[in-house]
Structures are given as structure tokens and as C-alpha cells.
């Protein structure tokens, strides 16, 4: 079994009025099936309200399924007894960098997770140092988080998760509030973790350019998984993506337009380099 497996996963948000009567039910996850293998880099796309964040919170056992089952590293998240282990195995990084840093000093924040799971003091120090080094923030260990940029704070948050030595990290729109430099640093950190340490990464994002290097892309709409494949496969389906209110990388869009205008370009162009190569070939 893969690291994450969902079968007929349903989650409903129930809104009640003051007397406790059900006012409305909205289905955030609708009989979702999904498989992720250990060590993969997965990107999840979908417009706001498509159910991506709800899915992310299930993987970390912050929410439990209304129906269906979700296994994280073989453990059923619905089972109360598994909750702590699941959270240890699958760490989570959230969107707002300020609202997930608990301590007033970087190294104390990174230690927060290991402290909670009862790691002995000496080992916490090792883990803190290693994690901060991995995300390139070691020299900021005694800084106050308030003195860091958004991108640096997100990398501290990643280190905080890393210190729990998870098999899998879910990043829920980690770059939405960052400037381009911060965005690039965070994505590079996530890629390195995946390529060098073999950590499974699930990256939820709006930025199509961040998806290009993923192993697989999942597209969600109305609580369902509506498309999946390699980035190249996904981005060659421009019309379908537009239908789900999603964009494609700019270069893919340009290649698509050129193709329509009659240039015989290959499908699935995602990066500038690829487009340059294709056009140069065509010229020759």
C-alpha cells in the first residue's frame, strides 16, 4: 500500500443554527479515491472551494472523514488511536506564515513538534540543528520570527515539521502570501526534501509554474479528483483546465496559441526552454 490511500472519501461541513438544527450541508469531498506512493512529489490544483484544503486536513487527521476511509502509511485516520502517529508521519505546513509559528525564537519553534511527541532533549537539539540546516535557516536559529521575511518564516515552518521526521509533508498553499523570491525558496526547499531525503511531498498551490517539476498532478473540482497525470499530460489539456477555472503555465498557453495559428508544435510544452527548443527545431 502507498503512503496515502483514499477510498470513497466524503467530508461534509454541516452548518447549524442557534437551536442546533441543520441549516445547510456542503460537501467538500465527494467520494474521492486517491493513491500516493512513498517518495512522490504530488501537486494538487483546484480553484478556491474545490476541496483541496479539506483533503489536506484529512491527511494530517485534523479532520475525520464523514464517510469512506483514508489511510496514511497504512493507518486509518478515523481511528482515534492512530491520530498522533498519523500527525507524526504526515506533517503539515499552512498558508499564513505568522499563524503557525508558536515560539518567539526560531529554534524553540522548530523544537515544538519533537517536544510534543516526547523526544529526549539531546535528540531534540540534533533534530533542530539538522532541520534548520536542511532548509537553509541554521544561521537564523536564535532570531525572532518577527524579524524574518515571509519566505524565511515558511522555511522555519517546514523545519518545524521536518524535526518530527515525517514520511510525508503536506504544504497547503505555502506560497500564496509570499513574494517571488520567497516563493522560489520555499518551492526549492520542498523539491530538495523530496529529491534528497525521499520525503513524500503533497503541494497544494495556485501557481502553475510551481507544478512543473512534480511527479504527478491531481486536479480537484467540487470535491472530486477530476484529472490526474504527469504535469505534461495535464498541461496538454488546456481547454479542460480552463473549464475547471484553472490556468496553465504561460509558456504552455503561448505554445497552444501558436499551434492554433498553424505552427506544428509538439503538445505538452511547459517551460521556456522547451518552447525555445521546439521553435528552434521548427526553424531548422
Amino acid at each position: 500500500m502507498g503512503i496515502i490511500k483514499a477510498r470513497q472519501l466524503v467530508h461534509e461541513y454541516i452548518r447549524r443554527d442557534e437551536e442546533g438544527n441543520v441549516e445547510s450541508i456542503s460537501t467538500a469531498l465527494d467520494h474521492l479515491n486517491l493513491d500516493v506512493e512513498q517518495g512522490q512529489f504530488i501537486a494538487v490544483l483546484g480553484h478556491n472551494g474545490s476541496g483541496k484544503s479539506t483533503l489536506a486536513k484529512h491527511i494530517n487527521a485534523l479532520l475525520t472523514p464523514t464517510e469512506g476511509t483514508l489511510w496514511v502509511d497504512g493507518l486509518d485516520v478515523s481511528d482515534e488511536e492512530n491520530v498522533m502517529t498519523v500527525r507524526e508521519n504526515a506533517g503539515m505546513v499552512f498558508q499564513n506564515p505568522d499563524n503557525q509559528i508558536i515560539a518567539s525564537v526560531v529554534e524553540e519553534d522548530v523544537a515544538f513538534g519533537p517536544e510534543n511527541i516526547g523526544v529526549p532533549t539531546d535528540e531534540i537539539w540534533d533534530r533542530v540543528e539538522q532541520s534548520l540546516r536542511t532548509v537553509g535557516m541554521l544561521k537564523y536559529r536564535t532570531y525572532s520570527p518577527n524579524k524574518l521575511s515571509g519566505g524565511q518564516k515558511q522555511r522555519v515552518a517546514i523545519a518545524g515539521v521536518l524535526a518530527m521526521q515525517p514520511k510525508c509533508i503536506v504544504l497547503d498553499e505555502p506560497t500564496a502570501m509570499l513574494d517571488p523570491t520567497g516563493r522560489r525558496d520555499v518551492i526549492r526547499t520542498a523539491l530538495e526534501l523530496n529529491r534528497e531525503k525521499g520525503v513524500t511531498i503533497i503541494l497544494i498551490t495556485h501557481y502553475m509554474e510551481e507544478v512543473v517539476e512534480a511527479d504527478r498532478v491531481f486536479v480537484m473540482d467540487e470535491g472530486k479528483l477530476v484529472m490526474q497525470g504527469t504535469p505534461r499530460e495535464i498541461f496538454s489539456r488546456v481547454e479542460e483546465l480552463k473549464h475547471y477555472r484553472l490556468g496553465v503555465p504561460q509558456m504552455t498557453l503561448l505554445a497552444d496559441e501558436l499551434r492554433r495559428a498553424g505552427l506544428p508544435l509538439a503538445g505538452g510544452i511547459m517551460t521556456r526552454e522547451e518552447l525555445v527548443e521546439e521553435l528552434a527545431k521548427l526553424r531548422a
Binding site: Q250, M251, L253, L254, E257, L258, A261, L263, R272, L275, V276, L279, A280, R283
Partner: peptide
């Protein structure tokens, strides 16, 4: 991205206008 694309295409010998900045301009000049 378009600006970079235009310059790179120029280096590869394509006679494109490097001043194009939007997708529409890029398409036209290519």
C-alpha cells in the same frame, strides 16, 4: 517570461521583436 523567451529566440537566430512583453505580442512576432 515573455521577455526572456524573446531574447532566447533571438539568440537562436529567430527574427523576433525582443520588446514584446505580453502573450499576444509574443504570438504575433513569433
Amino acid at each position: 517570461q515573455v521577455t526572456y523567451l524573446m531574447h532566447e529566440l533571438r539568440e537562436r537566430g529567430l527574427a523576433v521583436d525582443t520588446r514584446a512583453t505580453t502573450l499576444a505580442e509574443a504570438k504575433d512576432t513569433i
